[in-house]
Each structure stands twice: as C-alpha cells, then as structure tokens.
Computed example of a mutant assay.
Amino acid sequence: MPISYPPPHVPDLLPGGLLRGHTAFITGGDIGINLAIAPAFAHSGASVSICGRTERKLIAAADELKALGARVRCSVSDVRDAEAVSAALARTAEELDPVTTVVAGAAGSFFAPAEKFSPKGFGP
C-alpha cells in the first residue's frame, strides 16, 4: 500500500529538517502504524532504517521513504532474534549514522497478561 504522506497537519507539528542529523531505527517498519511513523521521521529530515520480516514489503516501504528524500536502509530481521536486530542496528550505523531514536513497534498479535510474557515479549 502506498504511503500517503504527509497528512495536512503533520508539517505544522513536525517541521521539515527538525531531525536532520538523526537516525531512526523502526522495528516492524514495513506495516501498520510503524510504516505510518517512518515518513514522519523522513519528513523531519532524519535518516530511517526499517526492519521487518517481509522483504517485499520492506523494499516497497524503503522505496517510498526514499521518494520522500530520506536516506533509508531496510533489513529483514525478526525482533525475536536478538542477534539479527543487533546486526541490523550495526549496519544502520555503518551505512547511515548512529541510531538516535528507536521505535520498537514490532509485536505479536495475541492477548496475554503482561506477567505471562516471556523475556522476548512474544508469548509464554
């Protein structure tokens, strides 16, 4: 789905260039609200690194973010794999700049009491 950005009120809230020199790392950045958050960082001048599990969606999202003028990288990585996420963060710092903001938006879709979450936060 194409990114529809910016909504009319966003430029008033997040002036272009506000985050120039910053790099945002967004997990789950290929879908849902996280995909809607990424263009706000791009509009504000930040470099954007998105990770998710679906390469096709990541590439499409990265292309649209680049069209907004952002420096972008994407990586296929599952947040349940700490080593993969660490590697994606390291590559972001190498290819863009050190990460200044993390949006930890990837999540499983299930209901469970918080005290039943495993350390990975994706189920008992």
Rank of each mutant, 00 (worst) to 15 (best):
A38N: 03
A61T: 14
R56L: 10
G105A: 10
S44P: 05
S75T: 08
A112S: 15
G28V: 00
C51A: 14
A114T: 13
P39T: 02
S4A: 11
G29Y: 01
A24Q: 00
F110I: 11
A67W: 00
A114G: 09
E115N: 12
S109A: 14
F25D: 03
A61G: 07
R53Q: 13
V85R: 04
V102H: 03
E64V: 06
P119G: 10
A40E: 05
K66F: 02
K120Y: 11
G45L: 04
C51D: 04
V76F: 05
K57V: 08
C51G: 03
S44T: 08
C51Y: 00
G108Y: 09
P98D: 08
A42P: 01
D30A: 10
A38C: 08
F25P: 00
D78R: 01
D81Q: 13
I26P: 00
G52R: 01
A104E: 11
S49T: 04
R73M: 15
G32Q: 07
A62M: 10
G29W: 04
G28W: 03
P124A: 11
M1N: 12
A88G: 06
A40R: 01
A46P: 01
L18E: 09
P15C: 10
A61E: 00
G17H: 07
L13N: 06
A40G: 14
A90S: 15
A40V: 08
E64C: 02
L58K: 00
K120N: 14
G17A: 11
S118K: 07
A84Y: 04
I33D: 07
G17R: 07
P2T: 12
S49P: 05
R56N: 11
L89Q: 08
T27S: 12
P124M: 07
